[in-house]
Design a protein around this nucleic acid. Structure first.
Length: 584
DNA sequence: TCTGGGGTCCTACAACAA
DNA sequence: TCTGTTGTTGTAGGACCC
């Protein structure tokens, strides 16, 4: 707890929805909802216009559609959000070397460490300048909280929303916290909140009254002690610039519960391969394999197995996950499956090969014996063989990762598309000028699109290609509710994604179905554009990468703008302001 | 028509070793 | 050698966050 409010918390306002509105002029001022569009999707972000209808994060999408039937419904475009987030984080990095990102749209900054502020006036000035810079560089708004601790800075930014700044003067914490709901405190969710309510505690002042011992009795040691301290305004957690990942996981919820044991096993293996892809991409290997199963009744169980050493071998993870599945009763149906790896190590491929070789020698000498060791040995050996097949053998790049779209994992993903029908077949409805079907959902394309806009980040955009990857065998697994009509070569046009037409220029997909795709031709700097409909296989129409939200200079031809916005471009708008006003 | 995905942290319990 | 204690590890589940 420091004596000056030099910890800053930034929270971008309705980030995903705001980014979509900035990218699509016709959606500005209108309700926009971003999230999974499948039958079991939930809302990731709702614009403030949509919130007026009662739509909020984590709400089932079906409920959101009932509340705001005329809102625009979009699948998330993480490549766009990431590029905007990088711009914002770069601005934060200019304030201090100590920046702790919490997510794409949120971060703590230690202003003192960067010399950007030492007291209330300088902290406020730095916060206001930051908000201006963010607006200039990204076109979006963010809310800033300033306080002497992380907890209070976060509470302050919440109070500042939308598009504001709140500074909590040190010394006023207890007074400020007293009347606030216990749910304001980080770590108090629905369960703890209800637990405390039953004990007669609803606001922070009552936490202090109850005392530490009583809180420990109510909610356990760690939680009780931290609750008591937080209610008093004590929070000494430092801003930590880098935190190591502790686990990597992937999971899929299915549109329709799975019953077929063979199919379930297939899905588990596919998830295991996707998980290893991510694990390798992060430069890690891991020791503990975790299987997650959510059953038809929403009950969730996990099973885990710890190997003798870390692995990033798809075969090892696949087989461990399959073994774990054997111990789970899936009668009644399964709505979600997940595979994760924890106990991460920074093992490189070379280390693994050395380990595999050592274990192979041990096997030859009768060193490994029973049960799990045998399983592990088998996996490791396969790992060596498979690595050879990928040309990552001795002398290859350390920590080499699978190139996107290559190798067995990619093949698995292509065949086993989760089929959540996100995006394609979804039609935006933004006031009635949408020409596609009334309900917007077009099963004819749903299956074909399911790979886009979700899942592994690398697959979230049909970059540069025809978008046909992974479509060919969509029907092969026969996922219920998934269209089998995604003909080989048919292109996917996820709602909201950017396209470019040879004649009409840049636009975005407003909807698709029945062999047609509807495009609105507009871009961030343009006025609201017109809508045109094409055949899905129109050769003049190509998927394109997101355009910068804030146009730089007078270069209307942005046809090949990369997904990550060029740094120089992002600086054009904000640099002068930041440097000019560096002294308050 | 209920309830995503990717994480972190904590607690409880059992098994095992020192 | 047996028994009790303590610490560690593995496993499972719950709560929470964005």
């Amino acid at each position: 707890m420091r004596s000056a409010p030099t910890i800053l918390h930034l929270d971008m306002d309705a980030f995903y929805a705001a980014a979509e509105q900035a990218a699509k002029p016709s959606l500005r001022g209108k309700p926009v909802v971003v999230g999974g569009l499948g039958p079991r999707g939930v809302v990731a972000t709702a614009s403030y216009e949509a919130r007026r209808f009662g739509v909020h994060s984590a709400m089932p999408m079906a409920q959101a559609r009932r509340l705001a039937p005329n809102a625009a419904y979009l699948v998330p475009r993480f490549s766009l959000y990431r590029s905007v987030s990088e711009q914002v984080m770069e601005l934060l990095g200019r304030l201090s070397p100590l920046v702790e990102p919490l997510s794409l749209d949120e971060a703590f900054v230690d202003l003192e460490a960067g010399g950007a502020a030492r007291d209330s006036p300088s902290a406020r000035a730095a916060g206001e300048r930051l908000r201006e810079d963010i607006r200039a560089v990204t076109g979006l708004t963010g809310s800033v909280g300033l306080a002497g601790s992380k907890m209070l800075a976060k509470i302050a930014s919440e109070q500042a929303k939308p598009d504001g700044l709140v500074l909590i003067e040190p010394g006023t914490e207890r007074e400020l916290l007293g009347p606030l709901s216990v749910r304001t405190l980080p770590g108090v969710g629905p369960a703890t909140g209800e637990h405390l309510r039953r004990a007669g505690i609803t606001v922070c002042a009552e936490l202090v009254e109850a005392g530490e011992d009583e809180l420990v009795r109510l909610v356990g040691k760690a939680h009780g002690v931290s609750l008591y301290r937080m209610a008093l305004g004590y929070d000494d957690r430092p801003v930590v610039a880098e935190r190591d990942a502790k686990s990597v996981s992937v999971e899929d919820t299915f549109d329709v519960d799975l019953h077929d044991r063979v199919r379930i096993r297939l899905e588990v293996e596919r998830l295991a391969e996707r998980c290893v892809e991510r694990l390798r991409a992060s430069g890690h290997s891991g020791r503990t394999i975790v299987l997650k199963v959510r059953r038809f009744d929403f009950s969730t169980l996990t099973r885990s197995e710890t190997l003798r050493g870390p692995t990033d071998d798809p075969a090892v993870v696949r087989e461990a996950a399959a073994r774990l599945l054997e111990s789970v009763d899936t009668t009644g149906g399964v709505r979600l499956l997940g595979v994760g790896v924890s106990g991460l190590a920074d093992y490189t491929q070379e280390d693994l090969f050395a380990q595999a070789a050592a274990e192979a020698r041990a096997v030859d000498e009768g060193g490994l014996g029973e049960g799990r060791a045998a399983d592990e040995r088998r996996g490791t050996d396969e790992g060596v063989r498979e690595a050879g097949g990928e040309s990552v053998g001795p002398g290859a790049e350390p920590g080499g990762t699978l190139p996107p779209g290559s190798g067995p994992a990619a093949a698995g993903a292509a065949v086993g598309l989760p089929g959540r029908a996100d995006g394609a077949g979804e039609t935006l409805r933004d006031g009635g000028d949408t020409p596609a079907g009334e309900q917007g959902r077009e099963p004819a394309v749903a299956g074909a699109d399911s790979g886009a806009g979700r899942g592994p980040r690398g697959a979230s955009h049909p970059a540069g290609g025809t978008g046909a990857v992974g479509v060919a065998e969509t029907g092969g697994l026969g996922r219920p509710g998934e269209s089998a009509t995604g003909a080989p070569g048919e292109r996917r046009w996820p709602a909201g994604h950017d396209v470019r037409h040879a004649v009409y220029g840049a636009g975005w997909v407003q909807g698709s179905g029945v062999g047609r795709v509807t495009v609105r031709f507009e871009e961030p700097g343009s006025p609201p554009g017109r809508v045109r409909t094409f055949r899905v296989d129109d050769p003049d129409l190509e998927p394109s990468d997101p355009l910068p939200l804030v146009a730089a200079g007078e270069d209307p031809d942005q046809s090949s703008c990369p997904a990550t916005l060029p740094k120089e471009r992002s600086r054009d708008g904000g640099d002068s302001g930041a440097t000019e006003s560096s002294s308050p």
